[in-house]
Structure formats: structure tokens, C-alpha cells
């Protein structure tokens, strides 16, 4: 298993795209965190450290990580290297486990780096814009997230991106699907549901990213949001795994 991880580590970091996307992720995280702090009150109110550290769970940041997540399988299928990988490691469950573990490690490291950037910005922020006490606000809406929630939400988002890539064998779909779902399609569904006057409410209640964000931002009217989001993540991952084991390389 160690050699699987070494293989994936070398595969991940030997491509410049990983470095570039990680850098862009940090820049976007920094800009999103710094904007409200440095551009005056703007109606945001006083931020807290906890609220500031919720910033990198925003979809605009996560889409950068999802690019790298999609590349875990996307590059393998696009360039045919999956056949090299599976010749070297015939046990597919180990290949999948290694990729999943390394994706987790990558998200964790990136999130910590993002917090480091946000921490540096926080120390430079104007005095009145950042408070140690109080509830603060979350860029993603609702209450500030717990730190472990930021990591877990980021990992879940990337896991969906990787799973979509595995299912479709298309790198772009793995990036675009979660982005469009979370930022446009789910919003449109909610609009249609309002117009349908209650007939589509059940759909709204099970939307993956709406529930994920509700869980992340502690929306109290959706107590099962975390479970519903987790079910979606596990569902995508299980389907992708089954296809990965069953299909030809």
C-alpha cells in the first residue's frame, strides 16, 4: 500500500497543473477572505477568526481543488496511463484507496495552506474588521463553520468531482458538474419548486449541495442536511467504485 501511495504522490506532484491550481486556490481564498475585511464595512459587519477560516469552503475556492481531484482519474483516462497504473497495481481496490487517501491528504494540506493565507490576512486586517469574540459571519451564509467541517466539506466536494470523473471518464465533467449543480442548477430547481407551489418541495429537500451548505452553515431548519449530503457523496463514490472495478481499463 505504501508503494501505491508513493506512486500517487509522484503522479500528483509531477504535473505542473497541480501546483498551478493549488496556487490559484490560495490566491482566491486570500482574495475572498481579504475583500470584506479591507474594503470597509460594506454591510458585512465585524468578522471573527472562525468566520474568516470558513472562507475556503466556498465553491469558488473548492472548484480549484476539484480540478486537481478530477485529475486523479481524469488524466489517467485521458492519457491512457490508467493501463500503466493497473498493470503495476493489479488490485484495483488498492489503487482506488490510494487515490482517495491522497485526495484527502491533498485537501487537508491545501485547506491548512488556505488557513495560513487567511491567518496572515487576518493579522494585517484593520482593527475594527476582525473580532476575537462574537458570532461573526460566514461567506457561505449562515453561521461560521467549524474547522473540521471546512475540511470535510472540501473533501466531500472533491470526492464528488473525482467520482463524476470516474463515472463519465471525462475530466471536464468532473469539474463542471459539481460547480454547475451547486451554483446554478440547484438554484434553478429551487425557483421552479417555488413556482410549483409545493409540488416539488421533496426535490428541494434532497438537493446535494443545498444540504451540504446547510450543514456547513448550521442552518437549524434542516437537521438532516448533513446526512442527506453524506448520502449523496457516498452514493456517487460507490457507483464510481463499482464501475471502476467492473469496467475495462
Amino acid at each position: 500500500m505504501i508503494s501505491n501511495l508513493i506512486y500517487e504522490w509522484r503522479r500528483l506532484w509531477s504535473v505542473r497543473a497541480t501546483w498551478i491550481m493549488t496556487f490559484v486556490y490560495l490566491v482566491i481564498t486570500g482574495l475572498l477572505g481579504a475583500g470584506p475585511l479591507f474594503l470597509g464595512d460594506g454591510g458585512f459587519g465585524t468578522q471573527t477568526w472562525k468566520g474568516l477560516y470558513s472562507t475556503n469552503a466556498n465553491v469558488l475556492c473548492l472548484v480549484m481543488l476539484s480540478v486537481v481531484a478530477s485529475q486523479f482519474f481524469g488524466h489517467e483516462y485521458r492519457y491512457g496511463t490508467i493501463r500503466l497504473t493497473l498493470t503495476e497495481f493489479p488490485k484495483r481496490e488498492r489503487v482506488l484507496l490510494a487515490k482517495t487517501l491522497l485526495l484527502g491528504a491533498y485537501v487537508l494540506i491545501s485547506t491548512f495552506l488556505g488557513w495560513a493565507v487567511l491567518g496572515a490576512i487576518g493579522t494585517m486586517a484593520p482593527q475594527d474588521s476582525l473580532s476575537k469574540n462574537g458570532s461573526g459571519w460566514n461567506l457561505n451564509g449562515g453561521e461560521p463553520s467549524e474547522l473540521w467541517q471546512v475540511v470535510l466539506f472540501g473533501f466531500s466536494y472533491c470526492l464528488i468531482a473525482m467520482s463524476i470523473t470516474m463515472i463519465t471518464r471525462n475530466l471536464a465533467l468532473g469539474i463542471v458538474f459539481p460547480l454547475l449543480m451547486s451554483s446554478i442548477i440547484e438554484g434553478l430547481i429551487q425557483v421552479f419548486a417555488t413556482l410549483a407551489k409545493g409540488k416539488m418541495d421533496w426535490i428541494v429537500e434532497v438537493l446535494p449541495f443545498a444540504n451540504g451548505t446547510a450543514w456547513l452553515t448550521h442552518l437549524s431548519d434542516q437537521p438532516n442536511a448533513g446526512l442527506i449530503f453524506a448520502a449523496w457523496v457516498v452514493g456517487f463514490y460507490l457507483i464510481a467504485s463499482a464501475l471502476f472495478f467492473k469496467r475495462d481499463a
Binding site: 509531477s14 492519457y79 491512457g80 496511463t81 493501463r83 500503466l84 498493470t87
Partner: peptide
């Protein structure tokens, strides 16, 4: 095994 001359990432 060597199955194809293009089985590599073009930027690695």
C-alpha cells in the same frame, strides 16, 4: 508491459 507509444502525460 508496453501497450501504446502515447501512454504518458504530455507535461510530465
Amino acid at each position: 508491459a508496453h501497450l501504446d507509444a502515447k501512454f504518458f502525460h504530455p507535461k510530465r
